[in-house]
Amino acid sequence: MNRNQTHRSRRWILKSLHLLGLFLIMAVICIPGLWIVLNSFRPTVEIMAKPPVWTPTFTLDHYRAMFGGAGEGGVPVFQYFRNSLIVSVASTVIAILIGMGGGYAFARYRFRFKNGYFVGLMLFRAVPGVALSLPLFIVFALVGLIDTHIGLILVYVAMNVPFTIWLTDGFFRQIPKEFHEAAEIDGCTRWQAFWKVEFPVARSGVAAAAIFAFLTSWNEFALASQLTRSVGSKTMPVGLLDFTAEFTINWGGMCALAVLMILPALILTFLVQKHLIAGLTFGGVKG
């Protein structure tokens, strides 16, 4: 009886520890983000108040200022949003097309130095953005690609192609060769066999690669901050810096832009969440 009781109380303690741990983890993950969202709705006076005000008042001032365009201290948010969207979507689509071709080549063909090519591509991806930005800045200045959408798109395509190749390679390799052979016997061309038989099976991998490519381009800062100059090509991560002056930071405005920046990434990720995890693990582990 006594032993039973200690056993039960030990289980109870373990269970509550488990819940407490989970709660703490969720709090640490959520609070910083929620704090940003909350502060985007608070007036600047309240954000700067000392001693702090714990009961928030609600205002849309920061959003009004942000969307009001280039007024007093206004940041051309729409332009930045447009630039980010153009650059991210274009570079994701191109990177997926190029990367899928590469992944298919690695999965289906045998050729010399295959591993060498593969590792080489991955190593190019590992080059730190800051280190690349120094020479890239000079080269782009020579060919006139500084401050253009095309320049940034090229850079992001190059960043995303190796990772796409890695993920799609793993997926294509799992599809038995008999699949496309059967399709070809039934009268499909090689191209049709790819689109109708092999591509649908590898869809999760492609979706995961696309999400990763989009997030990388959408969030990239080190290269964008050097390769963009004007409102015509600055992306949102670079635009965040507009809220900082020499000694002060417009926290409220920055929080509002931050919310605008996270929303598309959030929506997109939730839409393809399932594919994301499946794509990463299958592409990587079994590839």
């Binding site: 993950i29 969030n219 800062f221 996270i262």
Partner: peptide, 15 residues
């Protein structure tokens, strides 16, 4: 859990 993965590093810095 996947929430922080969507944050831009520069945004994490500011935050």
């Amino acid at each position: 859990l996947m929430f922080p993965m969507m944050f831009s590093p520069i945004l994490v810095g500011f935050q």
